[in-house]
Design a protein around this nucleic acid. Structure first.
Length: 457
RNA sequence: GGGGACGUAGUGUAGCCUGGUUUAACACGCCUUCCUGUCACGAAGGAGAUCAUGGGUUCAAAUCCCACCGUCCCCGCCA
């Protein structure tokens, strides 16, 4: 018999079906046992009568053995539920499966906690990730993340961007500030990519418009609610631009597309979190960093106008400001100081102390970072020196510029951060399937390799 | 790299400030029994914690002090 999915059963009343999935909950009432069968399409109620007939003794035993999360195959008859017994909360609530055969195909041990009502602390949730990912709400986070990435791809593909796969092993650091992971590379050393920056720029010289969905690695010795050692970076880069504002236009378009697509294609999952999304017809406000600092000063009395960058509290305040004044969850902050940006960032010709760069803040957190890049070979070489590096080490990258590069720029955003901000999650790890941080690679490193850590000290 | 907080059954919490009426409480889960219309089913009963670990103060420590391990959060930095 062909397998039937939960969502199909309302149309199959009177028919015999075979189904496969997990036992979601069990409600036993002596001689009548209800359980919910969960598969990839949803939930179906199954009903099973314990009978006194001897030939069913084995089946009766089986029904008693059912435990939450065990994997089963059942055969049975689809029936309308008796009047008044419908459950409007589930899509298949008008019908049920009268079970004739149960086969336990994957026994489940006693659960360490209630995964239907997950209120354990995050370390416990992450310790049991293979199990906790089965929770409806947790699962929804990653269906939304899938849609986000799919939407990013669709938006850029439709703008004639070429997708590419960026290498994870790189010969030297590509970003200024952040720490890198060293790896053994035969008799030499290499690094894990902090970003696909150099490769996307090189490929602008080839395809003109490119994007990539990649893992990025940062060895920041920090434990915060917004940092990961491995995160998913959505990168785009485009050449032959007229102005750096085009980059912001594209970033804005992609961001709005993502939110629209989620509302359109993942309404069910989104509804679990019920996020308040601001009017997407509103253009994201764009203000210079120095103006932003003045706004913060006016609104809060905090004078950070001499700081070279925005403080996290300032970013939260500016988002409040954007919301109040423009009705936007998003705000672009532009013209960061040249000194605070990587060597390849394009300085404003009218004000060289500041760059044609931008960050997009979303509900108080940096979501996108981008800007115009230096496309002139000589200027790049000089900047590499100014930043204290040897241009010889960048020769490979520099070829892209040595042999002709148009005006170009791009942006990148963290997939996990966007999901965290959209859904109002408290910790970025909740927006990551298998988060890596200082203390954890799946399992806690202190448990997994406690001895090693001690050896180092 | 700097700072702050927390560790009590499988899970989530209360108790700690003000040490002794605590046989360490409650909820979920688990086990047993009952239940033919539940849908996070319900009812009755039961098991499960040397209060993270080590030391100290005290007649007496989950409670106060120190050390250590673990966990979380904030800052720096960043997406």
């Amino acid at each position: 018999m062909e397998r039937t999915l939960s969502k199909e059963i309302p149309g199959l009343v009177g028919q015999k079906v075979k189904m496969c999935g997990w036992v979601d909950t069990i409600r036993a009432h002596g001689k009548i046992v209800f359980f919910d069968l969960r598969d990839r399409s949803g939930i179906a109620q199954a009903i099973f009568m314990l009978s006194k007939q001897e030939q069913d003794a084995e089946m009766n035993e089986m029904a008693k053995k059912l435990t939450p999360e065990c994997a089963i195959e059942i055969e049975g008859l689809i029936k309308e539920r008796p009047q008044g017994m419908e459950n409007k909360k589930i899509e298949t609530g008008g019908v049920e499966v009268q079970v004739e055969k149960i086969k336990l195909v994957g026994k489940a041990e006693i659960l360490p906690f209630d995964i239907k009502d997950l209120n354990s602390g995050l370390p416990i949730v992450l310790d049991h990730r293979p199990l906790t990912l089965r929770n409806e709400k947790v699962k929804a986070v990653f269906k939304l993340q899938e849609e986000m990435i799919a939407s990013f791809r669709r938006a850029l593909s439709s703008l004639d961007f070429t997708e590419f796969q960026s290498p994870s092993i790189i010969p030297q650091a590509s970003e200024g500030g952040s720490e890198v992971f060293h790896i053994d590379y035969f008799d030499y050393s290499a690094y894990l990519a902090q970003s696909p920056q150099f490769y996307k720029q090189i490929l602008v010289g080839v395809f003109e418009r490119v994007f990539t969905v990649n893992q990025a690695y940062r060895a920041e010795p920090s434990m915060t609610t917004r940092h990961l050692c491995e995160y998913t970076s959505l990168d785009a880069e485009m050449g032959c631009i007229n102005s750096w504002e085009e980059l912001m236009d594209t970033a804005e378009l992609v961001t709005k597309n993502i939110l629209t697509d989620m509302q359109k294609n993942r309404a069910k999952e989104l509804a679990i979190f019920n996020p308040q999304i601001s009017d997407l017809n509103v253009k994201f406000p764009r203000i210079k960093m120095r103006e932003a600092q003045k706004i913060v000063l006016e609104r809060t009395g905090r004078d950070n106008t001499k700081e070279p960058d925005l403080q996290p509290d300032d970013e939260k305040e500016l988002c409040k400001y954007a919301k109040e004044k423009y009705g936007s969850d998003f705000i672009f902050i532009t013209h960061y100081p040249t000194k605070k940006r990587p060597f390849y960032t394009f300085a404003d010709p009218n004000d060289p102390e500041y760059t044609l760069s931008f960050d997009l803040l979303y509900n108080g957190l940096e979501l996108i970072s981008g800007g115009q890049r230096i496309n002139d070979y000589q200027t790049l070489v000089e900047n590499i020196k100014k930043w204290g590096n040897n241009p010889e080490n960048f020769e490979f990258y520099l070829q892209a510029f040595k042999y002709g590069m148009p005006m170009e720029g791009g942006f990148a955003f963290g997939a996990e951060r966007m999901i965290k901000q959209l859904l109002g999650l408290e910790n970025i790890r909740e927006a990551t399937l298998f988060p890596r941080d200082m203390e954890r690679i799946d399992q806690r490193l202190s448990i997994l390799q406690g001895e090693k850590k001690k050896d180092k000290n």
